[in-house]
Simulated assay, not measured.
Amino acid sequence: MTTRAWRSEGLRWTAEGPLLRWAGGRESALPRGKRVVLAVPGDAVRRCVGARGNPCPAAAGVPGRSASARCEECSRLERAHSVAADTRADDPQPYHVYLAWFGPGMTKVGITAVRRGPARLLEQGAVVFTWLGRGPLMAARRTEELLRAALRVPDRIPYDAKRAVRAVLPASPGERAAEVAALHARASELAGWPEALEREPPVPVDHAAVFGLDGLPAARGTVRELVPGGAVEGRLLAAAGPDLHLDTGRGVVVLDTRLLPGWPLTGAGGGAGTGGDGAGVPLPLRAPARGAATDQPGLF
């Protein structure tokens, strides 16, 4: 009997928690404690997922380590229509400016459409966030630039840095919120805020419980890429941003779900795409950005 392969469209955050999306509209809930099993057939090739809802005309192959799962041409098309590319200055919808905290010394500024609520912060894995203000897109963008220039607040935090500190964050919500609150106060004192931006008071929102970070063990490493014949299997301990922290029985590893799209995936465990020994093809791990490097050569 042939095992049916599914195609992932990535992870989506909802009010009920994270979901894995699949082509065709199906979704799989990811409650903590769930056993996650994902395997790549041995003859599989990772293909470009296309852009703007359209398939890639070339069905181009893409590298296993790519977080976008898009070929060069589709990546250009997708970015050309994004807010980040500053090509939508006439966008009429209001935007929030926010401060997001991922760990000590790691606070960023960003913008997100008001209609999306906190979804963007959940997608990024922000442990704590607060709004700074709301207004038209270009006013929000100018405020973001003001903080970057005047306070040297970045607009990006590397995911490896976020992952490295999740298991050692301050336990108290007050401690976690202190840095965001202090930065909000400094930002409020700056001159040059756009008049069109409506300022908002500091109201820190803590996602530690939503993500499952309390008591989270340190990860041995992060899956660098999926490979044909490889499988990832473990009990879900936490989900933050696109990352799943899985207890594999041989240590905790982090799976970035952005690596899933483009691959055909099955729920067959025990070494999918391998011979009769069931050992499977080891998935390569990247050691944590900080702390002791893993001595584990692969997941299985």
Rank of each mutant, 00 (worst) to 15 (best):
L236K: 03
G234M: 08
L226Y: 11
R199Y: 00
L236F: 10
L216E: 07
G234A: 12
G251Y: 05
L216P: 07
D214A: 15
E225D: 02
A231L: 07
V203A: 13
P228F: 07
P204L: 10
P202E: 07
G192Y: 12
G215D: 07
L236R: 02
L237M: 06
S188D: 11
V205D: 05
G251D: 04
T222V: 14
V232A: 00
G251F: 14
A219Y: 09
G241N: 06
P202W: 01
D243L: 07
P242F: 00
G230R: 00
D214C: 02
V205P: 00
L236V: 12
V253Q: 02
G221T: 03
H207K: 01
F211T: 03
V203P: 02
E200L: 15
E225I: 00
G212C: 05
G251V: 08
P228T: 03
E195A: 15
L213S: 03
P202R: 06
P242T: 01
G221W: 01
A238N: 09
R250H: 15
V254Y: 00
L237S: 06
H207S: 04
L197C: 07
P194A: 10
A191S: 13
H245F: 15
V253M: 11
P201Y: 04
D243C: 15
P242G: 04
V254G: 00
G215F: 05
R224N: 10
G249L: 13
E189S: 15
E198C: 07
D206Y: 10
G241A: 14
G192H: 13
G215H: 11
T248G: 06
E195D: 15
E233F: 06
W193F: 09
R224G: 11
G249A: 13
P242M: 11
A187M: 04
V205R: 14
L190Y: 09
R224Y: 13
A218F: 04
V253W: 01
V254A: 05
V223G: 00
G215K: 12
F211A: 03
A196V: 01
A238V: 10
A218G: 14
V223W: 00
A196F: 03
G215P: 02
G230I: 06
R186Q: 15
A238H: 03
G221E: 03
P217I: 09
E233L: 02
L213N: 04
D206V: 03
D247C: 12
G241T: 04
G192S: 12
V232W: 01
P217T: 08
G212L: 06
L236S: 05
A240E: 08
P204G: 04
V232L: 11
G215I: 09
F211H: 03
P201L: 09
E198K: 13
D247V: 09
T222D: 09
D247K: 12
S188W: 13
A191M: 05
H245P: 01
H245E: 10
G241K: 01
E189N: 07
A208Y: 02
V205I: 10
L237V: 06
A218N: 02
A209G: 14
A209C: 05
L197K: 06
E195V: 12
P228Y: 09
A238D: 02
E200H: 11
R186H: 10
R186P: 00
G230P: 02
P228I: 11
S188I: 03
L190C: 12
A231K: 00
L226E: 05
D214N: 08
D214P: 04
P242S: 12
F211I: 09
A208W: 04
A209I: 08
E200Y: 03
A240C: 14
D214Q: 12
T222W: 07
